[in-house]
């Protein structure tokens, strides 16, 4: 366990204090603890009291990170896949955070196919909705705001019947704008409103400033935000830095051949498989050098996602973007 003062939260002496400079109050006199999670199992050794203290410290850290706002206690909604949830901070996708989902590009050519990414985004939305339904005491299920730019002749809307296995399309409020900037504006309005289950935006391009705004708005209201990028980017060129808490790349993967009861091959399509890569995991284990990736299979019948093979070790590959915040 190491103790130090992060630069941004230095005591007032180190930073001229102006009224209004700090939106809230937080204990300047207390040292800030940054915990290396599970490096050598300290938490296990320390016992139950220490576990409670750890939780309190984590909460303190979270408040500091949220700029002193009296933030809602953050929660996570698990994806439902043990192998993936184990990598994520606190075992799931954080609500009150921005998550980015990129479609993959295959073999260096720019593929417009983001069907798998869209499905994964819907799955995440569904998980957020399910987590919220468990805590909410409202008669009307929370709404999900889906913002996108209408694309004219080449437009391809998300198709509600195909999303139905992931989430109830009746919860969706679909917002279509004429300009790309309005998508971000609508998302921010939705996050500020604070009464939604989740907000999703389909964007082609974005930058650090825009995503930072979304991330802050999500942190403040505790509403999860998803950014579904329409255009994939090759990993080598790193498609711009964003402030997202997690960033996923989703590619289609060849599905398993379908066999009938006698074991003969059937001309049919099996359950869809996706290859998930967690390109960025802000609160993840900083000691990990590789990019966690899984091949998962979506089961239509049960509504479950399951890992079909062990994470692929890609540490030998060229250094790809890696941001640990």
């Amino acid at each position: 366990m190491s103790v130090f003062f992060p630069k941004a939260f230095a005591p007032p002496a180190a930073r001229p204090h102006r009224s209004g400079a700090y939106p809230g109050t937080y204990p300047f006199d207390a040292p800030v603890l940054v915990l290396d999670r599970g490096r050598d199992g300290e938490a296990d050794v320390a016992g139950r009291d220490d576990a409670a203290r750890m939780a309190a410290l984590r909460e303190t850290v979270r408040r500091l990170e949220r700029g002193g706002f009296d933030a809602l206690p953050s929660s996570v909604s698990p994806l439902g896949v043990a192998a993936i949830d184990a990598v994520l901070h606190e075992g799931g996708l954080a609500t009150g955070a921005l998550h980015e989902i990129l479609p993959a590009v295959g073999d260096g050519r720019d593929s417009p196919h983001d069907g798998a990414a869209l499905a994964f985004a819907s799955l995440c939305l569904g998980r957020f909705a399910r987590a919220e339904d468990g805590t909410r005491r409202q008669t009307v299920p929370g709404r999900i705001l889906w913002c996108r730019r209408a694309g004219g002749v080449f437009d391809a809307r998300p198709y509600a019947p195909a999303l139905a296995p992931f989430l109830d399309p009746a919860r969706l409020i679909l917002v279509e704008t004429a300009r790309a900037d309005d998508v971000l504006w609508a998302m921010e309005e939705g996050l500020r409103c604070g009464a939604l289950t989740a907000v999703l935006g389909e964007v082609f391009d974005t930058d650090l400033v825009a995503t930072r705004r979304l991330q802050l708005a999500a942190e403040k209201s505790g509403v999860p935000a998803l950014l579904l990028r329409r255009r994939g980017a090759p990993a080598a060129t790193s498609s711009g830095v964003t402030a997202a808490t997690t960033r996923w790349r989703v590619a289609s993967a060849p599905s398993a051949p379908v066999r009938d009861r006698q074991g003969r091959l059937v001309e049919a399509l099996g359950s869809p498989r996706w290859r998930l890569e967690l390109l960025r995991n802000r609160f993840g284990d900083p000691s990990r050098a590789d990019i966690p990736s899984w091949t998962v299979e979506w089961n239509d019948e049960t509504g479950d996602l399951a890992v079909v093979s062990a994470p692929v070790d890609r540490s030998q590959g060229p250094p790809v973007e890696r941001l640990v915040g």
């Binding site: 983001d114 069907g115 869209l118 499905a119 819907s122 694309g151 004219g152 002749v153 080449f154 437009d155 391809a156 809307r157 998300p158 198709y159 509600a160 019947p161 195909a162 999303l163 139905a164 296995p165 399509l269 359950s271 869809p272 239509d300």
Partner: peptide, 14 residues
């Protein structure tokens, strides 16, 4: 509609 499940595309072109 959910009975159609996987047989429908997630994106439908206008």
């Amino acid at each position: 509609v959910a009975a159609l499940k996987g047989t429908r595309p997630t994106r439908l072109f206008a």
